[in-house]
């Protein structure tokens, strides 16, 4: 039963990783941008959640109403003000600029919030649990997983059933021709980043409720999101959810064997899949 429990907990944890990964997957899909600062933006969202809840007394989930639009605005401004200038055929500018951004964000957070670990207080939600078939499942992990499924369904729907999604796909296919159709790619890219950071905000707040965080842990979250994307296969949002679940399960099973092995076994699972299925389990586009 212990192992079944570890398996189920790992799956639920995978929901959180899928939320980290969805934004990464989205911006890669639309503009072929890999954002090294993605993890630090997740942590920024967690800190914004912390500030909003402590300043207003709102429940962290209610704080999403403020943090999600704020992060979306930051995303739009970041894309139009900075990242659009890095796009082109050369790989180095986006990579090095987002890397610089990561260092700036990390140290900026350190300057404002110090290195002390923080946690978002969500009251009863943190400890509540439900019994399902002999397993005690935390309400928070179940909620996180449900949110991840809803978010990915929502992104998928946006992508394939709205004019915004159509514009995303058109710009991703051929930027010049999309411009001829009256689509301003700079604006579309801004919207894509806004959407991506909106999703990131949800991931950041759920992370902040679940565990304590400090400014240095962004890199680790970037890596988890990245692993979920690659395991699932590039360009496939449902694959990303599957990738998150596989990563989460690998981590909880590893932790069951030896607590020190949690993160390491996740990485090893990723490397194993990279070795046997370099394009991920459910690839849609080639990198």
């Amino acid at each position: 039963m212990d192992w079944v429990n570890a398996l189920v907990q790992g799956m639920l944890l995978g929901g959180l990783y899928a939320l980290f990964a969805a934004g990464l997957s989205l911006i890669f899909g639309v503009m072929r941008l890999v954002n090294i600062a993605h993890g630090d933006l997740i942590i920024l969202a967690a800190y914004l959640g912390l500030t909003v809840t402590t300043a207003t007394g709102l429940h962290p989930l209610a704080a999403l109403v403020i943090v999600v639009p704020t992060m979306a605005l930051i995303g739009y401004a970041l894309q139009r003000g900075l990242l659009n200038q890095t796009l082109g055929d050369d790989l180095l500018p986006p990579l090095l600029v987002t890397f610089g951004l990561s260092v700036i964000l990390q140290n900026g957070l350190l300057e404002i919030y110090t290195a002390d670990p923080q946690k978002i207080n969500a009251g009863a939600l943190e400890t509540a649990s439900i019994a399902v078939g002999g397993l005690q499942l935390g309400v928070l992990p179940v909620l996180t997983f449900a949110v991840a499924v809803a978010v990915i369904w929502g992104l998928q729907w946006t992508f394939y059933h709205t004019s915004l999604g159509r514009a995303f796909r058109a710009v991703s296919d051929n930027q010049d021709i999309a411009q001829l159709m009256g689509l301003n790619r700079r604006h579309i890219f801004g919207l894509a980043m806004a959407l991506a950071l909106g999703v990131t905000a949800i991931g950041g707040i759920l992370l902040g409720i679940r565990t304590s965080f400090d400014p240095s842990i962004g890199g680790g979250r970037l890596i988890f999101g990245f692993e979920a994307v690659i395991i699932g296969g590039l360009g496939n949002l449902w694959g990303t959810l599957a990738g998150g679940v596989i990563l989460g399960v690998a981590q909880t099973i590893g932790a069951k064997i030896d607590p020190g092995w949690q993160v390491l076994s996740g990485h090893l699972a990723f490397l194993l899949i990279l070795a046997i299925r370099p394009n991920g389990l459910f690839p849609r586009i080639s990198a």
Binding site: R166, R169, A170, S172, D173, N174, D176, I177, A178, Q179, L180, M181, G182, L183, N184, R185
Partner: peptide, 23 residues
């Protein structure tokens, strides 16, 4: 920019058709 010009009522059928493959 091209998108600003398009709004003024200028459209093109590009060489090689160039449809959007994912649409």
């Amino acid at each position: 920019r091209a998108d600003e010009i398009a709004v003024h009522g200028l459209a093109m059928v590009p060489e090689g058709r160039q449809l959007f493959p994912s649409l």
